[in-house]
Design a protein around this nucleic acid. Sequence first.
DNA 1: TGCTCTTATCTCGGTATCGAGATTGTTAAG
DNA 2: CTTAACAATCTCGATACCGAGATAAGAGCA
Lengths: 168, 168
Amino acid sequence: MSDAVDAIVDQWVKERADVEDDLWPVQLFGRIQRLAVVIEKSVKANAAQHGLDVGEFDILSTLQRSGPPYALTAGTFLKASMVTSGTITNRVDKMEAKGLVERVRDGEDRRTVKIRLTERGQEVTRAAFTDHLANYARLLADVDRDLVEKAAESLRPVLEALGDTTIK
Amino acid sequence: MSDAVDAIVDQWVKERADVEDDLWPVQLFGRIQRLAVVIEKSVKANAAQHGLDVGEFDILSTLQRSGPPYALTAGTFLKASMVTSGTITNRVDKMEAKGLVERVRDGEDRRTVKIRLTERGQEVTRAAFTDHLANYARLLADVDRDLVEKAAESLRPVLEALGDTTIK
DNA sequence: TGCTCTTATCTCGGTATCGAGATTGTTAAG
DNA sequence: CTTAACAATCTCGATACCGAGATAAGAGCA
């Protein structure tokens, strides 16, 4: 059994024998990066079926899973979504134009802006996320469930070590 | 022990109890996607220190690991790099201007164009890749080596199932 | 030779993202 | 109450990428 990353590492061993002992992280990171590309394309296709791009779907999902009242500040998205502030502004602009979210200025601190799901935004998100999960399941249809769970478990300490954060 | 993805899944369970049984792929895919972003940022920073962007570094690495004569067709990169043809053209244009690679038209089939590393390209790639591996090791410094290898192993069948390909 | 189908690469308009700096509001010190 | 420092968001130019279509070369067939 060998995959694309095995082939890549084999090539490196031949070409750069001097760093053979330093190639072990490639086995992990190479697979993560290639899997991420495949997954991203699939997520993108699913989002498109609901008239969204990936970034918009990301914002909507974050809002919905935060629970009622489905409102978070722009700053929260910065930490949750791993993108820059300009990107958030742009995404929210587009979704506000579509009527999926609305900006609400807080009376407490007028610098902050809460992004809130509209009724329509909630409906769209609900439908898109349901299909999103079906899409995920389809991608993993040919992989043993136990194996998927083991892989997920083994990545947890790695993600922690690399200092990931999320909304609290 | 819990990470950002555990938190995300917990939120979904509360908000969408109806799909609780379909959330298991999120444990794997969520970690893959978040790890990919962190890794990508780090790879980007390393490439920048050598005057390259990530896409350029990708092309150069693919060329070098292919071994002498360090030449591949544009089409090969399409399969290896998971990007579109326009992207490859653009990357090669920039690197040709920098003197890192050169286009060589094949006498056999004049539609195909081989992209070949120049002497300078080989030097830059060698140095950049050495630092790249050091960077990878740094990212994983706090993670048990056995665990990294187990995680890498567990991702192999997933990558195979999702139909990844590489250059032959 | 002429025609069509296929293959390989390039062109180019559209777009999401980055990232540094500007804008606006808040807090704290003197 | 003025000023400075800080915080949250937005602006905007630059850029890498996508992706559909154009271009150009080879292959098969009459």
